[in-house]
């Protein structure tokens, strides 16, 4: 019985040590563990010339499509609510790209403060809803997807919907 308890104590002590070591390491490297920086991070720290990932929401009404040398090109503004950055990108956009959608773009910050992206990934949020529900929310004026995140889940997650969702 005694030895059993000693083994348990050793195990718990090791766990405590390992846990705090891991927590400290993660805290020390927190800047390297993020997949992308936000427009506010860019504004406060400035990363001119570096290649980095910029993430945020595509600002409502900011998308401008064009064609450069036969390639689709797009300009849009990425915002995190406090700051925003103008992004230009030549290439094919992911299907989920739209105003109000999250995006993560890989590129460099130009001297003029614009961001030249070579890759655009869509970052969708944790809400899943059928088309019918979205239409109902739009019609009742409770949510415009272009403008930002949807209202609290409890207000819509059991509204009626059909299989195809309209």
């Amino acid at each position: 019985m005694k030895r059993k308890h000693r083994r348990l104590a050793i195990l718990l002590a090791c766990g405590l040590g390992l846990g705090s070591a891991a927590a400290l390491t993660l805290f020390a490297f927190r800047d390297n563990l993020v997949f992308f920086v936000t427009p506010s991070d860019l504004a406060s720290r400035g990363h001119a010339g570096e290649t980095l990932r910029l993430g945020g929401l595509v600002a409502a009404g900011s998308i401008r499509h064009a064609t450069i040398d036969g390639q689709p090109a797009v300009r849009f503004r990425v915002t995190d609510g406090r700051s925003s950055v103008n992004v230009s990108y030549i290439g094919v956009l992911p299907d989920l790209f739209r105003e109000g959608q999250g995006v993560v773009t890989l590129g460099t910050l130009a001297p003029d403060g614009g961001f030249v992206a070579s890759e655009v990934l869509a970052k969708h949020d944790e809400t899943y809803m059928p088309k019918d529900v979205v239409e109902a929310l739009k019609k009742s004026g409770r949510w415009q997807p272009d403008a930002g995140p949807p209202p609290p889940a409890a207000t819509w997650n059991s509204l009626p919907a059909t299989r195809n969702g309209g």
Binding site: E126, P150, A154
Partner: peptide, 15 residues
Amino acid sequence: QPASITLTGAPTMYV
């Protein structure tokens, strides 16, 4: 994306 189903809030997923 973060978790849709949590212990604290309503699931952000259609029932």
